[in-house]
Design a protein around this nucleic acid. Structure first.
Length: 425
RNA sequence: GGAGGGAUGGCCGAGCGGUUUAAGGCGGCGGUCUUGAAAACCGUUGACCGAAAGGUCCGGGGGUUCGAAUCCCUCUCCCUCCGCCA
């Protein structure tokens, strides 16, 4: 959510942001409702002021004077009953429209229509060359006996899977490694609720636009999170934080659930697009200074790059173009990792700055030395998400004999194992 | 699931129909003192909308009343006991 005062005085900046993000939000409608709300609110407040002023004197009055005062209050109340329902209706409409307004992207965000227009910032390593015919990750995983998709689909439906044997161990190894790396860099590890209230979904900006992509538990009116960003940011909802306690650096581990509505038939093979996966996510809450949050953004990015470098996975860092940036984000970098079977770099990490977008919705504020209260900035980035990360890991580190070499940094978490060997059938 | 109790400013906590303009404490900020700090003392300090006048906010929503933090209904959450259970 943005500041209505800012929208009011800079509608062209908002409209330009909408254009750059290739969205279609009607700002003029919002502004006209805003004007109407303020007009009607003025009426209502005048009647309320009347009522309050007259009521105050009533206990002191007697007889005819009292009757006159009561009549005046009645007139004010009649006025209120005329305008209050209208105000309420307008305010509801206003709130609804405010939730739709996108955060304008920073000027450094490139123009573009799709991820083909993302701009590479730097890269690590080179696309892997094979002197044999490489297998894709699903073939590898099946021959290594570390996955069972058909059985998962049998009892849980499409886009479901079971990781087994070294696959299950590998996932735990990745998460343990990621958590230890982040903890060593001062991030606070968190295990968080994976079912949340609607408020948290709206507050973090996933609703109302992303509602179709979310699993809903109707009986308890709770939603399954699509990322631990939701609980980690909502954690400080309705709080006023002290400047000395900022920035907050969190790393949360959770399962993530996504309906992937509208993606039928896309990325159906293997580990790329699934209804459920696990992820270590980084979240930062800091003061609302764009320069400070830019420094934090770079920190988030560098953490994930360090992790990918330690794993030895070839990847590139790309600046996401306008159309690829979500409603609330002002800046997004992706880490795209080389996936031989796709013969391209594909997204494994998404690093976002949201400025005040989430903190305004969740009322997360901070108090500075001058006692002034401001909204915070929030940021987030993937540390590692599995099984998607297993695509480049299995594919890039496969050997001609069908085995897969385990990255050295993960071996301590896998009883020293160096390779996963194919199982003979 | 059953029975009771509760939710008040950044935090703790009083108030239970009209000088509440929400007491008091803690914390924050400013000052005195000090080489500096601590302690002590003095002052100051709720959030939101509005250009202002003013208005709104005592968990959310609704109601009673001339007037509600205060009374009634309802929802959510927390605590205690019982039941069930990992």
């Amino acid at each position: 959510m943005l500041d209505i005062a800012f929208i009011r005085s800079n509608p062209e900046i908002i409209k330009e942001g909408i254009r750059k993000k290739r969205m279609n939000t009607d700002i003029d409608e919002l502004l006209s409702v805003d004007e109407e709300v303020r007009k009607v609110r003025g009426e209502v407040e005048a009647f309320r002021a009347d009522r309050n002023r007259i009521s105050k004197d009533i206990p002191k009055l007697k007889g005819e004077e009292k009757d006159q005062a009561l009549a005046k209050v009645k007139a004010a109340k009649d006025g209120l009953s005329r305008f209050e329902p209208e105000l309420k209706k307008l305010e509801e409409q206003f709130e609804k429209l405010m939730l739709m307004v996108p955060n304008p992207p920073l000027s450094i965000v490139p123009e573009g229509e799709s991820d083909d227009d993302n701009v590479e910032v730097r890269h690590f390593g080179e696309p892997t060359k094979f002197d044999f015919q490489p297998k894709d990750h699903l073939e590898l995983a099946e021959s290594l006996d570390i996955v069972d998709m058909p059985r998962a689909v049998k009892f849980a439906g499409a886009r479901m899977y079971c990781l087994k044997n070294e696959g299950a161990l590998l996932e735990f190894a990745l998460f343990k490694f990621a958590l230890e790396l982040l903890v060593s860099r001062g991030f606070q590890p968190m295990i968080v609720p994976q079912l949340v209230r609607r408020e948290a979904m709206i507050g973090t900006g996933f609703f109302p636009l992303g509602e179709e992509d979310t699993f809903y538990v109707e009986k308890d009116d709770l939603y399954l999170i699509g990322t631990s960003e939701v609980p980690l940011v909502s954690y400080h909802m309705d709080e006023i934080l002290n400047e000395k306690d900022l920035p907050k650096h969190y790393c949360g581990y959770s399962s993530c659930f996504r309906r992937e509505a509208g993606s039928y038939g896309r990325d159906t093979r293997g580990f790329y697009r699934l209804h459920q996966f696990n992820k270590v996510e980084q979240v930062i809450i800091c003061v609302n200074d764009p320069e400070v949050s830019m420094v934090e953004h770079r920190l988030l990015l560098s953490n994930s790059e360090a992790l990918m470098q330690a794993l030895g996975l070839p990847h590139r860092v790309a600046l996401a173009c306008g159309a690829e940036i979500g409603q609330g984000q002002v800046l997004k970098h992706e880490i795209e990792t080389w996936m031989p079977s796709r013969n391209r770099y594909s997204e494994t990490h998404s690093c976002s700055s949201l400025h005040e977008f989430q903190s305004r919705r969740l009322r997360i504020r901070w108090r500075g030395k001058n006692s002034k209260v401001n909204y915070c900035h929030t940021l987030n980035n993937t540390a590692v998400a599995s099984p998607r990360i297993l695509i480049p890991l299995l594919e890039n580190f496969q050997n001609e004999d069908g085995s897969v070499t385990i990255p050295e940094v993960l071996r301590p978490y896998m009883t020293g194992m160096e390779r996963i060997e194919p199982k003979s059938k």
